[in-house]
Computed example of a mutant assay.
Amino acid sequence: MPSWEMQVSGDCEAMQAVRGLQVDTVGRLWVLDDGRTSTECPPKLWIFDLNKNDSVVLVYAFPRDFYYYKSERGKLHDLVLDRTKTDWLAYIASPNARNLVVFSFKRNASWVVKSSVVFWRQISGVAISPGTRARLYFFQFNSKELFSVSVRDLRARKEDPAVRLEFSGTSISRMVMDAEGVLYFDLGVRKSLFKWNTSSPFKEERLLKDVLLVRDIPFTFTLDEQGNFWITKQYENKKPRYKLLKADVGAKSYLYDAITDCSSSNETCDSSEMEKDDSPTFSWNFEISPEGKTIFIILLICLNVAIAVSLGTVIYCLLQKLKKLQDSFKEAMARPKEFKGLLAVNST
């Protein structure tokens, strides 16, 4: 996808090692390419327009210092999308580089969330909750804790944002969020899939059992618009090598939430507001001082008086013309012979 020419191994102009996929609500496919194969290519973010024959919308190469840590080549592993009122953001896990990377579609730029605490190290998976109090959930490689951070802090590029421990006890390999804030995740050692409503205190609920999902073998989760939960599995020494599993859970992807906080107010964001280009937007924002308000009111009063005077003058002139016409008509009626004569001449 979209062509074999874009799948050539070792060609840094093509995709090399896809680690994350997301489709937004306006029909764009976001592809996270780690770039590491036999050739060292920079990691990139590819965006395709599925509504226009899978045409390339954007290809963004991440800066070197985003994926290197102490001269060691890191990798970009997973991503989620954050829809705001005027932009689309991608939050990207970078386990080896010990960074959380943020990409802005509107700015065509990325930055690293700076933190002095240990929580950013080896982030392996991310998920984002919907609503006005959205949080980014993440876990670390080979860790038994799940953490979260405020999305509002991430949007504001706040340094050292507060990190909250959600639960501890069992390691997670993959997770995804639905539009109601329910987190779906696997607990590989228990060979099961679970879910948790993040608006309530942590309480796991088994969704599927006897599902063997091993962390070292690639697999993915996703939710579609019809409420189906999809899982891809890969086997090393078994045929078929790949399986696609489906479960009806009655939930849509987190991107289809009804309420998304765009800044700080309880506004509803519609996907129709999300523009596909980077067109500039303009707005007027000004304040009037108390003295200015007084002058403004006086000007409005003067304007109203001027309008009233003008209308009065026009009405007076019209009344004068009407009076002259009435006087002329009365004068003509007072001379009936001349009036009749005039009619006789006109009739001939």
Rank of each mutant, 00 (worst) to 15 (best):
K239N: 09
P240Q: 02
R241C: 00
Y242C: 00
Y242E: 11
K243S: 11
K243N: 05
L244T: 02
L244A: 05
K246W: 03
K246M: 15
D248N: 14
A251Q: 13
S253R: 01
Y254Q: 05
L255T: 07
L255C: 03
L255M: 13
Y256D: 06
D257C: 14
D257Y: 00
D257H: 01
A258Q: 07
A258I: 01
I259K: 03
I259V: 14
T260E: 03
D261N: 07
S263R: 12
S263N: 11
S263W: 06
S265H: 06
N266G: 12
N266T: 07
E267N: 11
T268I: 15
C269A: 02
D270Y: 09
D270F: 07
S271R: 09
E273G: 03
K276P: 02
K276A: 04
D277A: 06
D277I: 03
D277F: 05
D278E: 14
P280E: 08
T281C: 09
F282N: 05
F282S: 07
F282Q: 09
F282V: 12
S283G: 08
I288E: 10
E291P: 01
E291Y: 02
G292H: 00
G292L: 02
K293F: 02
T294H: 03
T294L: 13
I295S: 07
F296V: 00
I297A: 09
I297F: 06
I298G: 00
L300Q: 14
I301D: 05
I301S: 04
C302L: 15
C302I: 14
L303S: 14
L303R: 10
V305C: 06
I307M: 11
I307C: 06
V309E: 06
S310K: 12
L311H: 05
L311P: 01
G312T: 08
T313K: 09
Y316D: 07
Y316E: 08
C317K: 14
L318I: 11
Q320C: 12
K321P: 00
L322F: 09
L322K: 15
K323M: 08
K323S: 11
K324R: 15
K324N: 14
Q326F: 07
Q326T: 06
D327M: 12
D327V: 05
D327Y: 01
F329C: 08
K330F: 12
K330L: 15
K330G: 00
A332H: 05
M333H: 04
M333A: 10
M333Y: 04
M333S: 02
M333T: 05
M333C: 12
A334F: 02
A334T: 05
